[in-house]
Amino acid sequence: MSNEPLPLDEAEIRARLERELPHWYYENGWIRRKYRTGGWKGTLMLVNVVGHLAEAAWHHPDLAVSYAFVIVKLCTHSAKGVTERDFALAHKIEEVVQWQPGQEGGVLEGTPNDDARFRYIKYDSGPDPDAA
């Protein structure tokens, strides 16, 4: 019995992205997300987070890296399409990257986002306007 997940069909992928991951979009066989950063330091931090999560999951995305953004692309190459593995990793990436401890009311203050000197990532407030 194989452990290989089956690819999802495009209609299901699009519906699930809309419902579960509204900042992600489907394009050319991949689910994708563009994260905007405050500059190179934030970009490197984001790449390292995604790299750690992907390696821990043993499921590896393609990344496009620039000065102030990172594009994450997920598909399961062995299944030749998007599978549950891609959705699981996308959810984990979202959870970690979008974490803002200062909004939880706990003992961790979080990054002072109202001060541009410390802002390293642009947190989401709604659907991605750059999504296809």
Rank of each mutant, 00 (worst) to 15 (best):
R16F: 02
Y26T: 13
H52F: 12
H77A: 05
G106F: 10
F87W: 06
N48L: 13
E18G: 15
L108C: 09
A15M: 03
Y26Q: 12
A79D: 07
L74I: 07
G38P: 02
G29C: 09
Y67W: 15
S125C: 03
D114S: 13
P7S: 02
Y25D: 11
K80P: 00
T43K: 03
R33N: 11
V96W: 02
L63T: 03
N48C: 11
W99M: 10
P61C: 10
A131C: 06
H77F: 03
D124W: 14
V50Y: 01
L63W: 01
W24L: 08
Y26L: 15
Q98H: 08
G42N: 04
Q103R: 15
P129V: 08
G29M: 11
A11H: 03
N48K: 14
E4R: 11
A88S: 15
I71W: 03
H23C: 14
M45T: 11
L108P: 04
N3A: 14
K34L: 13
Y26K: 14
D130M: 07
E104S: 09
M1E: 00
A68T: 14
T76D: 13
W40Q: 11
F118R: 08
A57R: 06
E4G: 02
K34V: 13
D86A: 12
L63D: 06
L21C: 12
D86K: 09
G81K: 06
E55S: 13
E18Y: 04
